[in-house]
Nucleic acid binder design. Structure first.
Lengths: 186, 186
DNA sequence: AGATACTATGCAACGAGTTGCAATGCAAGC
DNA sequence: GCTTGCATTGCAACTCGTTGCATAGTATCT
């Protein structure tokens, strides 16, 4: 895929160590692209070998040494190439959808805790995005900021969508409970 | 993950051959969970060995033989187990978001064709969903139908969200074109 | 003094998914 | 008669990503 390119962008925005990238992927960037530190180290090593990034070791006095990566000219070129390359929208893949259809062959009410949990998680994410929005994207924005904001807006939009959808689904399952529970299991 | 469980659900809804499943994953089910036929055959083989599904070979007169799979009791039990098992909402992972942020280090206008293409794709999907909606989910629905419809509704909701978001993003990029193109490249 | 936790890097083994290829047998069009 | 296309199953090689573990130094709490 293009964890490669996600890392290149992240390094262009700010040269960093692998550890730092991993932490950043746990927050801002990770909201729309997740990766573990092992994977990040692997990809960084590969990209260093390919010459897309260059590492500079920084000795820490009161901390372990860190390898600071920055994007080379050829890494930048690769990013440009990838940017122009057309790609299709990725398909959805959500286990919750499968579970909903599976619920038809079991007691649907068993899904309620799961749905509540999802709703809560999406509500939390939405709140987190709103905080970032008012903290980092208020007022006039330069190009880079405006583009980052547009990305964040997709997050906001989708969390809201999820929230409403979860509400609908929960209501639907509750409506089943009124009727006599027709047990499928023998 | 749980292509396993997606296949189990699909087989509960209708016992099928691998080929048939693959085709179904190219349409209705594939709209929210995609898989290739190779992957499907692999998983079916694994599940057959685990005893979750049973195969019955059906000799075709004017067609190749096909292995018809159906879900066994233990497969059903596994599905029930999985249904009750809590899981976290999956994170987003969209290359387009990365490209948007990458555009800050290149000429953003180069992204316009890509965005137009995404918008068109999402518009097509939305239309397809709408067709399914009015064809299969009009009127009163039983439990199974209602659950399937709820899944479809998430698709509709998200395609609409994408559509609007793409429009926003395109407008944003166009707004950059008014300003003098400040070339990042040396 | 010892336990816990954070910074920092990485390997090894595995599982999931993709890409490319192969085989067979039937039907239809040129 | 030949090519194209569909139905049907599958193998092999590869990449991407996850899980579990290892190491090592510093800081903080008890």
């Amino acid at each position: 895929m293009s964890l490669d390119h996600a890392l290149l962008v992240s390094l262009l925005e700010k040269p960093s160590s692998g550890y730092e990238l991993a932490r950043r992927f746990d927050r801002s960037i990770g909201y729309f692209w997740h990766a573990t530190h092992q994977q990040i180290y692997k990809v960084l090593a590969r990209m260093e070998e390919a010459g897309w990034v260059a590492a500079r070791v920084e000795a820490g006095e009161s901390a372990p040494d860190r390898k600071l990566f920055s994007v080379s000219a050829s890494g930048r070129a690769e990013l440009g190439r990838w940017l122009a390359e057309p790609s299709d929208p990725e398909g959805v893949r959500d286990a919750l959808m499968v579970k909903l259809r599976a619920a038809a062959f079991d007691d649907p009410a068993r899904l309620l805790p799961e749905l509540e949990h999802h709703r809560a998680t999406h509500a939390n994410r939405l709140t987190a995005y709103r905080v970032i929005e008012s903290r980092d994207f208020a007022g006039v924005l330069d190009r880079q900021r405006a583009l980052q904001y547009q990305v964040l807006k997709s997050g906001i939009r989708f969390e809201q969508g999820w929230l409403e959808w979860c509400g609908e689904a929960i209501k639907l399952l509750h409506s089943f409970e009124q009727e006599p529970p027709r047990r499928e299991k023998k």
